[in-house]
Design a protein around this nucleic acid. Structure first.
Lengths: 265, 265
DNA sequence: ACTCGTTAGAGTCACACTGACTCTAAGTGA
DNA sequence: TCACTTAGAGTCAGTGTGACTCTAACGAGT
């Protein structure tokens, strides 16, 4: 009983367009604190860990309770447990504040799934690189999660989680560009992604654009190789529904008939 | 108060020679449980988190208390908090066992530093890939830490922590070979390490071998770039004392005089 | 004193990957 | 039918890497 209490919080990333500039960026939902340490400030969604639930279960529960979100990708980020986590910019009562150790997860949700986290008095989306003053040390946590996101994206196959089930390579490329803050050569990006095996071409194309139709791809079914850094059973992935990233676009049924996947012609 | 208790444990890696075969390998110290869940079994050094100490502080404290070790590299590994952590191979009383969330660190100690963890009735070193049946889910934790060690070694500049302050490139190479379980071409290894900037040549050489003297190197002073995945202030590194890895070797004062670092001749 | 065995350390070469770039395909809208 | 735009294939030079060869410099044995 002489142990700090445990809280579980989650940094949720999604790609969204800026309401004014229209620029695509990384956004996160925050919830307003309705209790006294840092009352009224924005904070990461989360809550105390129950006695009878696992860590990831707690992350999903608090996530669903505060934002209605069920992320397609969820992974543990870090355990924050220093003594000064609550002080810094503290503006509340100076009375004794109970100490918490926060076990923080980070999640990716697709743009359509993100809409389930409806904005309200107590829930709002912020650009990840431009958050207001947050409760506790949550600003540090968000920055760390962002760096982890960038780092992980450059190695692995996380980008799919931002887009829907079917996506064009241009959409996938824009995920990389937005997250990493760079621009990528379309041709080189195509070459690398296609040879990586992370992606499989479908026979569907996108029509309705004012240019040549783009082929739709889907994420390769993970071959249960499990090489990623996850102990035990946590693969991080979930089922995912379809949604779109670009502005004007619709999918269309199969192409002609002959040629199973395009025999070179 | 209705939260699981927190324990902090550490997986400590060190390179040691097998007492019989003489083969170099990755070893970890374990401590014998002296209380009832899993009494008598080997387990990771650790203990409950006090109310007034940070996570890393707790890791160092419990480490020092059980094994006398002060690791040169220490980093958080993962928080384990599933509900079934204590069941599996449980052989103790079936009564209600208190639930713990373990925040696990992993550490590297040099071969000489490792000798401070003297073997005793309750402390023993084991080959990391051949541990006995461990308490709780510690076997899973050890395996995960091993995979993380291998993964991290192939990217970063961790290898130094296994050797002393001064080391030859052959010693550093053997660290890689032992941890990764491969053999590396000496010439190519030299080329890569030297161009990586992680290492700086000294003007000292190793004599006493039956072949050409090898130059001693030291770890490059980290340029405060802090690109590694560590939130807040945790850089992971500590001060380190000198020690040797190979069998016959002594160092000798500077070389002749002319030539600051060998002008090609 | 000389040779031998051993490892240090420099250097070479072919191959694979990458970034920059060009060119053609295939749609929409005027 | 032309202009515009993006999809997607292809080319080419530079760079890093693995496999390999060659010389340097010690101790040990004869």
């Amino acid at each position: 009983m002489t142990s700090p209490r445990i809280a579980v919080s989650t940094v949720i990333f999604s790609l969204q367009r800026h309401p004014r500039t229209g620029a695509l960026g990384v956004w996160i939902p925050l919830v307003r604190r309705i209790r006294n340490p840092y009352l009224g400030l924005w904070a990461l969604p989360g809550g105390p860990l129950d006695l009878d639930e696992g860590l990831e279960t707690a992350a999903r529960r608090t996530l669903s309770a505060t934002t209605e979100l069920a992320p397609s990708y969820l992974e543990q980020l870090y355990a924050f447990g220093e003594l000064d986590r609550t002080s810094s910019t503290d503006s509340s009562d100076a009375a004794s504040i109970e100490r918490f150790v926060s076990i923080v997860y980070w999640a990716l949700v697709s743009t359509s799934e993100a809409q389930r986290a409806a904005e309200s008095e107590n829930v709002r989306w912020f650009a990840a690189d431009d958050v207001p003053g947050l409760a506790f040390d949550h600003r540090i946590i968000v920055d760390y999660a962002l760096s982890r996101l960038r780092n992980k994206l450059s190695y692995g196959r996380i980008a799919h989680a931002f887009v829907g089930e079917r996506f064009t390579l241009a959409q996938l490329r824009s995920v990389y560009e937005v997250v990493l803050g760079t621009t990528l050569d379309p041709a080189n990006f195509r070459r690398q992604i296609e040879s990586s095996g992370d992606v499989v071409a479908t026979d569907e194309m996108v029509t309705g654009t004012r240019h040549r139709p783009a082929r739709l791809y889907r994420a390769a079914t993970v071959a249960t190789v499990e090489t990623g850094p996850h102990p035990g059973q946590h693969p991080g992935w979930n089922a995912g529904a379809a949604d779109i990233l670009s502005s004007p676009s619709t999918t269309s049924p199969p192409t002609p008939d002959t040629a199973e996947n395009g025999p070179l012609s």
